[in-house]
């Protein structure tokens, strides 16, 4: 295996970004992912590290409003971006409507995937509003709308190993109705 050459910390890039409304200027080892920055450097442990390979969705956060896997982004790649994590959506006393819906519908068992599920669902609602189609649509040019089949397709990037899926789908559809109404 070839030798690696260390990179001096003097060459570390500086990244300015906003996280949950708060501005940060970070100079970290460029190997640091957005997820590890949130969890290990900023104490925002709501975003979870499941697979660390973009397959499970437990690390899903919102980047400029779009849902992404925080594990597959270096924090240095998020220069100038606005990040919202589960901590930025709601508090214990003032739950986000989707947090309340997951609570009401028991949309979890162990809860490990839940922050990612909720951030992902927030991103999905925005995608519907922006007319983003899905593979579940018979006609890709049609106006998208949300039903159980659509939720399952659009949330396929979030895995729940407890398999709370029926209640997750119910929570999302219920929250969406409240949202739209």
């Amino acid at each position: 295996m070839p030798q690696s050459h260390p990179i001096s910390s003097a060459a570390w890039p500086t990244t300015r970004l906003t996280i949950n409304g708060q501005k940060h200027e970070l100079t970290v080892d460029p190997r640091t992912t957005l997820l590890d920055t949130l969890r290990d450097h900023l104490g925002l442990t709501g975003s979870k590290k499941g697979c660390d390979h973009g397959q499970c969705g437990a690390c899903t956060v919102l980047v400029n409003g779009a849902r992404m896997n925080a594990c597959l982004s270096l924090v240095a790649m998020r220069h100038g971006d606005e990040i919202v994590t589960i901590e930025g959506l709601g508090e214990s006393e003032t739950l986000h409507p989707l947090q309340q819906a997951f609570w009401t519908h028991d949309g979890l068992q162990c809860g490990f995937c839940t922050p990612g599920q909720i951030c992902s669902a927030v991103g999905m609602f925005r995608e519907i509003e922006h007319g983003v189609p899905s593979a579940a649509m018979a006609n890709v040019a049609a106006t998208p709308s949300l039903d159980a089949v659509e939720v399952r397709e659009r949330m396929s990037g979030n895995i729940c190993r407890c398999s709370a899926y029926p209640n997750i789908v119910a929570a999302i559809l219920d929250s969406r109705q409240g949202h739209a109404g």
Binding site: S120, P133, V140, A141, R154
Partner: peptide, 26 residues
């Protein structure tokens, strides 16, 4: 993109059948 969805639907369908929503955003 509406131009893709209407005039090049094979491309929209291929993209939507790949990866997850998170990955497609990124």
């Amino acid at each position: 993109d509406n131009r893709i969805r209407e005039a090049y639907p094979v491309l929209a369908e291929a993209l939507l059948n790949g990866a997850s929503a998170q990955l497609r955003n990124q």
